[in-house]
Structures are given as C-alpha cells and as structure tokens.
Write a protein that binds this DNA or RNA. Structure first.
Lengths: 211, 211
DNA sequence: TGTACATCAGTGAACGCGCGTTCACTGATGTAC
DNA sequence: TGTACATCAGTGAACGCGCGTTCACTGATGTAC
C-alpha cells in the first residue's frame, strides 16, 4: 500500500491516529471537546470504528490525557536540561527549580486545552497518575521530586523541611497556572504577570530554605 | 395566596428560585450540571419560563457563579472573624492569613461543585470578577488583600515585598485546592493532606517574611 | 503454491437521549379612566 | 367602585442538534493444511 493509492480498508494504526486527533481536539477545546465522532471524522473513518480500539469515550480521553501529561513533562525536562546539569551549587539547584516551575506555567498558558486534559482524567487515582507521563517516562510529579532532591543536597531546603515540599511548590505553580487560565491572572498584562510569577518563585524558594 | 392553595400561576420570585436550584445543581455536579430544563423542573415550572428571567443559560450560570463566590467569601470572612480582630500582633496577623487560606481550601473540598462554578464564569474579566462576591460584598480576592495589608502592618512582609503578594499566597491555596479536587492530593489520607497544607502555609509565611 | 476459513477491522443505518431555544398561546395583574 | 385593556409571567408543543453506543453487516488479512 503506497501513499498514492486511495485509503485502504484497514487504516493501519487507527488507535494511534485517534489519539492524535484527540490531542488536536483537546488542544482546541479542552477535554470536553474530545468526542468520538469528531475524532473519527478527522481520521477519515466511520464514527464507530473507534470502538475497535477503545471500549468507550472515556478510554480515549484517558489515553489523550496521558499523552498530555507526557508533553508537560517533556517541556519541564527540556527547560531543566537547559541549565547546567553538572553544576551542583545552590544557585544551580534553584535555577533548576525555577525552570521546572516556569515550564509548568508556560505549558499551561501555551496549551490550556492539553493542560486541562492532563488533569481531567482519573481524579482519585494514586499519585502515579501524575508521576508518570506517556509510555511510563517520568511524569511532572517525578521530575519535580528529583529537582527538589537536588535542591536539598545543595542545601536549599531547611532541615526537616524536605517532606511535603513538592506539594508546597507544586501548589504554587499549579495555582498560578489555573489562575491564569480561569482567574484574574488571565486578564493581567504579560509584564505584570511575569512580575507576579517572579514573586511566586521567590516566595517558594525562601519559604523552603528558611527553617 | 396562602401556602395551602395550589401553586399560583405566577411564581412570585422565579428568578431567585432558579438561582437557588442552579446552586443545588452546581453543588451536585459542578457548572456543567447547571441546566435550564432541570432547574425549571426542580422549581416546578415549565422549562421555558426561565427565559423570562435569563436571556440564556449562560446568564443563569453567571448568576449562580456569583453566588458561589459569595459563599466562598463568607466562609473566609467567618474563619477570619474567629481570630481576635483587635489583636494586631504579627502572630495574630499570621493566624488571619492562615484562616483565610484554610477557609479557601476547606470550601473547595466541602463544596467542589460550587468552587468550580465560581471559577467557571467570566474567565477574562477584570480582577473584580473575584474581588466581589454576591451583591457587591467584598469577594475572596478583596478579603485576601485586606489580610495581607494587616500582615504587612504587623511586620510580616519583607520590605518591598508587598506587591504581588496576594498572587503568591493565592496561587498556593488555589493550587492546593485544585490538586485535591483533580490531582494527587485527592487520594491522599486526610492526615497527610493536613500535613501538606501545614507545610504550604509555612512556606508562604516564611517566603513572604524573608527579604 | 494454492485454498478454505477463522478472525480482525472496518461500514452504514439506526436508536435514544437531553439539551437550548423558539413559537404561538393563555392566565393573572395592575393601571387609567 | 367598576371596567377595559396593556402588560407581564407563565404554558405546551415542537425543532434541531450532536452525541454515545449498538446492530447486522462486509472487506481484508493471515494461517493451517
């Protein structure tokens, strides 16, 4: 089957294509926009072919959500990698924490639909839900944990304050992100928003350091 | 018209009753559950009578959202009032900040549907959107601002660090709340969650204080 | 190398759902005289 | 105090929508012999 022939009866990789279409839909309109019929339409397949690959809509949604979390993790990893990974100074460790947070916020702003979709699925699951990204690569939560471990080794965390530090840091950037998407930070000019984010980073950094 | 007679043709205060029903629906299923037909059904009125009072569904949703924000603000005010309002020590100011944050998180956990509804409406409006509660009483954002002003006066905020402090603090509690509702904090045992929240408060307090 | 046949991956039509919204209408109310 | 009439607040039926899901079916594929 070459690409010049007409569409063959069998798609070849319909499951993957549906997830891809689902990602596109999520990007455009968030989790609610992930709709079996429209995804099938975009792939060019009848609207019930999807049921050969997903038992129901929810399963498709979950598959898309996992990819979305993977993309968020990838963005975090990318910004982390832009810092010098060999440098284990306190300054470098803090830069990595900021990079982690900035990637998180930037992803939420750049891809609100995907961001929401990543959080929409499996509400009461274990932490793994967000610990893992696509294909079992480390997810957003794991990445943050690693960065905080590094900060701890570099002396950036007060004695005994390492526990639950991820939730304090995560709450900050997650809240900031959603306040941009749904709240008053969305109407704020970019420069002010940047100042507010800077202030948030300072607060977290100092808050973790002081005992 | 006494209460023993059958329902009169005119409802009397249908607008208010629809908002009330909408609040109930939101409580049960979040903003998406606010549905004109079901609200009318609950009030005992034909499903299009609502259009005498709201131009469309979105308007009803906004009215309900405003009430939800008002309830959140009321809960915050209530916990703030439980601290000694005359005491202007640093310790008291910090207690008030914690009360504010705790009320926010508790409301989100106790009434997730209302909490979401309060944030669903009017995404790109001015800050007023959340600055105001129902009937123009001070909203969640205003309350937080007042508490932070008090903290500043009591010396709990580092010089020059007052600006954007509300966004740092708010991001923390808002993120914590939504991570409980949609994320990994939801699956955490209450005692651990409490420890995580405590850790968050410490982080914010110290982060604001240190210059 | 050929062929019967199980199995897999699609198709097209249809069902049922609840919704938002509009239409033409009717019962109740209040006000001018 | 009575009455005509405008106005307001409801009613009941209907339209159109897009969806998730199921049904009986068909075309393509691979494997045992």
């Amino acid at each position: 089957v070459t690409s010049s022939t007409k569409a063959p009866y069998h798609h070849g990789n319909l499951r993957e294509a549906l997830i891809e279409a689902g990602l596109e839909l999520a990007r455009e309109g968030g989790p609610d926009a992930i709709v079996v019929r429209e995804a099938s339409r975009r792939v060019g397949v009848s609207h019930n072919a999807a049921y050969r690959h997903f038992p129901d809509r929810e399963s498709l949604l979950e598959a898309v959500g996992e990819r979305a979390r993977g993309q968020l993790a990838a963005m975090m990893q990318q910004l982390i990698d832009q810092t010098d990974p060999g440098d284990d100074s306190l300054q470098a460790a803090r830069a990595r924490l900021r990079a982690t947070g900035r990637a998180y916020v930037e992803f939420a702003i750049a891809e609100p639909g995907l961001f929401r979709t990543g959080f929409r699925t499996a509400p009461a699951e274990e932490t793994e839900h967000l610990a893992l990204g696509a294909s079992k690569a480390p997810g957003p939560f794991s990445l943050l944990g690693g960065v905080l471990d590094g900060l701890d080794r570099a002396g950036g965390i007060a004695p005994g304050a390492r526990s639950y530090a991820e939730f304090a840091a995560w709450s900050g950037v997650h809240g900031f992100s959603t306040l941009v998407l749904d709240g008053p930070l969305g109407a704020m000019p970019a420069s002010e928003r940047e100042a507010a984010l800077e202030r948030l980073f300072e607060t977290i950094e100092r808050g973790l350091a002081e005992g």
